[in-house]
Computed example of a mutant assay.
Amino acid sequence: MDVEGNEPDPRFTLANERTFLTWLSTSLALSAGGVAMAAVPRDVFVPWVRTALAVVLVLLSALAAAMAYPRWRLVQRALRRQAPIPPLALAPLFGYGIAAVAVLALVLIVLAR
């Protein structure tokens, strides 16, 4: 990372680091959810739907992990330059993606009963 700019308040740097670690934790949780969805017995959900949900969760997991460090770096650069924090462009994708998986899983759970 470039060191251009001023050293930001350590509290901001540490908050940025906690956010980075939270993205990694979120990635791990999404991955675990995808693996769990893939392990659901065949008679609970339609197999292709179960697989699709698992794939979406694991893809979201990979995206969260892959974007964690670049996001940390962009925010750290903005802090050093005392510039506005860049918006999180992928927030809608994560929010709507996880919501869609949750709603579809809920529908399938209700229909399976």
Rank of each mutant, 00 (worst) to 15 (best):
1 M>S: 06
2 D>N: 10
4 E>W: 01
5 G>H: 02
7 E>L: 09
8 P>G: 04
9 D>N: 13
9 D>H: 12
9 D>L: 08
11 R>H: 10
14 L>G: 04
18 R>A: 08
21 L>I: 10
21 L>D: 09
22 T>Q: 09
22 T>E: 06
23 W>E: 00
24 L>W: 05
26 T>P: 11
28 L>F: 15
29 A>F: 14
33 G>R: 01
34 G>W: 01
34 G>S: 04
36 A>W: 05
37 M>D: 07
40 V>M: 13
44 V>R: 08
47 P>Y: 04
48 W>H: 09
48 W>Y: 09
51 T>N: 13
51 T>K: 07
52 A>Q: 02
56 V>R: 04
57 L>H: 05
57 L>Y: 06
60 L>E: 09
60 L>W: 08
61 S>D: 03
63 L>V: 09
64 A>Y: 06
66 A>R: 01
66 A>I: 01
67 M>A: 14
72 W>H: 14
72 W>K: 11
73 R>V: 04
74 L>V: 05
74 L>G: 14
75 V>R: 06
75 V>I: 13
77 R>S: 12
79 L>F: 13
80 R>V: 10
80 R>G: 08
83 A>K: 08
84 P>R: 07
85 I>N: 09
86 P>K: 00
86 P>M: 01
87 P>D: 05
89 A>W: 14
89 A>N: 10
89 A>V: 15
90 L>A: 13
92 P>L: 00
93 L>R: 04
94 F>Y: 11
94 F>A: 07
94 F>T: 05
95 G>N: 02
96 Y>L: 13
104 L>S: 15
104 L>T: 15
106 L>R: 04
108 L>K: 10
113 R>P: 08
113 R>T: 13
113 R>D: 12
